[in-house]
Design a protein around this nucleic acid. Structure first.
Length: 306
RNA sequence: GGCGAGGUAGCUCAGUUGGCAGAGCACGCGACUGAAAAUCGCGGUGUCGACAGUUCGAUUCUGUCCCUCGCCA
């Protein structure tokens, strides 16, 4: 029988981490972070990693485990996450997946098999992109893999290049072997989503960005920059805006703060769209005073855990 | 008070030699298989400051008024 897995998803700043602690204690769960940036060490403030005292109450996995000078890929995250889930399950406890990285979540709980990658092929396609433009490469994709071409917009150079890379490496269409509209879990899965009004999310984001700046985000970002962050680590919200500001010059503190807030709001919207599309998610009101009890009951009933 | 500039989308502004008003941002919605906190797609916004005049037709031309900013007094 498939292992039981509990999950708590939702957009940034909705309040997942906090409620997850109490829920985890109640159902003897350990938390597996599903977050593409909290996995990096040294990005404590900007990625809003759960504080030490929370982590002492409940074991957390995939938080501050990876050196920011290294790139992270979905495939690696999938392997690490699966290992954590297996480990927790073997010890007789319940994995509680908590996070908002949509693709990473699906990579963990579904049978997604990521085709290989090759830097040299990628580099050549990037050169061609430079020369011919995205539209030309999209046209090529329509010939090689019509199904993929209809699902990737002609302007989306990144995904077009990736599709062509996979076709070249595997000799098979990019669209082969999976159906992204199916949401088949490999675990016995209970997914709760945390809901909050847009206005509340936005207000919480603004407050949190202020708190991060007060807590020394600028210094943390400078230290990270000096250590040579990988391409994936440096694009984390907050850090990215700080680096752009220092490179292109003159942004006032106020403008910088506004840029971070704006980018984070956009991100929250994308996250909501992602999880709204997932039929497995059962939604809960984050403001409900009874939220913790409801979540505990939901996981107990669905997974039949103590 | 005088002179100058300006009042167009929630914001910043473009524009119409007079013919159903448009960009960016914001906002909303969506897509998503080794960069995903990435990348990309779709969408609506309006008494064109007010009133009058000229005109088949005025946001555009004319007049008066109101408001904002700057300089001078």
């Amino acid at each position: 029988m498939a292992p039981r897995v509990a999950a708590l998803v939702g957009s940034t700043a909705v309040g997942k981490s906090r409620v997850a602690i109490e829920v985890a204690e109640a159902i003897s769960a350990e938390i597996v972070s599903v977050d593409s940036m909290q996995i990096y060490a040294g990005m404590t403030i900007g990625t809003d990693q759960p504080p030490q005292d929370w982590r002492q109450r409940v074991p957390h996995h995939l938080i501050a485990e990876k050196d920011p000078s290294e790139e992270l890929t979905v495939a690696e995250f999938q392997a690490r996450g699966r290992a954590a889930i297996d480990d927790i399950t073997e010890r007789g406890r319940v994995p509680l997946l908590v996070g908002g990285s949509g693709l990473y979540f699906r990579a963990l709980v579904e049978d997604l098999d990521f085709p290989p990658r090759a830097e040299d092929v990628r580099a050549r396609l990037e050169d061609e992109l430079e020369e011919l433009g995205a539209a030309a490469l999209h046209e090529r994709l329509s010939e090689l893999d019509p199904a993929a071409a209809t699902r990737i917009e002609p302007g989306n150079a990144r995904r077009i290049v990736r599709a062509l890379e996979v076709i070249e490496l595997t000799g098979k269409p990019f669209s082969d072997g999976y159906d992204f509209d199916r949401y088949d879990s490999i675990y016995r899965l209970a997914v709760a989503g945390l809901n909050r009004s847009r206005a509340d999310i936005y207000a919480r984001i603004e407050r949190r960005v202020d708190e991060m700046l007060d807590a020394g985000l600028l210094d943390e970002a400078a230290a990270l920059r000096a250590s040579g962050p990988s391409r994936t680590a440096r694009q984390a919200l907050g850090y990215r805006q700080i680096y752009e500001a220092t490179e292109s010059g003159a942004l006032s503190d106020k403008e910088l703060r506004a840029a971070i807030v704006a980018a984070t709001k956009k991100f929250a919207k994308r996250q909501e769209a992602w999880f709204r599309a997932d039929p497995r998610v059962l939604w809960f009101d984050a403001d409900d005073p009874d939220l913790t009890a409801q979540l505990i009951a939901f996981y107990r009933n669905t997974l039949e855990v103590p």
